[in-house]
């Protein structure tokens, strides 16, 4: 698979899965399965890209989620989302080369990092502040847990289909 096309693909998948299933939240906007897509995107890019897996993972996770914020009218959060989900995608890419328990631990670290970046970022953000950041903490933890569970399981499916190991479009 071509890494550039794969990264553009996963950026679009992250954006649309984030937009597709959304439950409005009292604080940052919506409860979504975007984190599942970010973890999944990181794992796929980590598994499929011999060179710069963390960079591709960060791009797909960060750009895809930020695009979803912009497209759904929450463009205000896009910069912070770019940082938080970019870090989540990069750490998920690092998880790809591990298996079993270690992969789950790495994926949990990735989604926890997202929660921390959001909390610190929102607390420092003038128009949100500590008040908004505290309201945000629990929903983000739930999203992180669900995202890890679904993202790692979905990557397992892809591994079983063997799509990532096809060499007719060598990963560059």
């Amino acid at each position: 698979m071509n890494s550039r096309i794969l990264t553009l693909t996963l950026t679009v998948v992250v954006a649309l899965v984030t937009l597709f299933v959304r439950i409005p939240l009292p604080s940052r906007g919506y409860f979504n399965v975007g984190d599942a897509a970010v973890i999944f995107a990181g794992l796929v890019l980590g598994g499929a890209s011999p060179k710069h897996p963390l960079l591709w993972g960060a791009l797909a996770g960060g750009l895809g989620s930020a695009a979803a914020d912009i497209l759904s009218g929450f463009a205000l959060f896009a910069p912070l989302t770019l940082a938080a989900k970019g870090l989540e995608g990069a750490l998920a890419a690092a998880a790809a080369k591990h298996t079993a328990a270690l992969r789950w631990i790495w994926a949990a670290v990735a989604s926890s990092a997202m929660v921390i970046v959001y909390f610190v970022g929102e607390a420092l953000w003038p128009s949100i502040g500590l008040q908004g950041a505290l309201a945000e903490l629990l929903p983000n933890l739930l999203q992180a847990a669900g995202g890890t569970l679904i993202g790692v399981t979905a990557f397992g499916l892809v591994e079983r289909t063997g799509w990532l190991r096809d060499d007719d479009t060598a990963a560059r």
Binding site: T9, L16, V17, T153
Partner: peptide
């Protein structure tokens, strides 16, 4: 819902990859 979402992600990966390649 969890099973459907995992299948959706796996299917979307390859479907959108083909769509991206074909659109380009």
């Amino acid at each position: 819902s969890g099973r459907r979402l995992t299948v959706l992600l796996a299917a979307a990966l390859i479907a959108v990859y083909h769509e991206t390649e074909a659109t380009v």
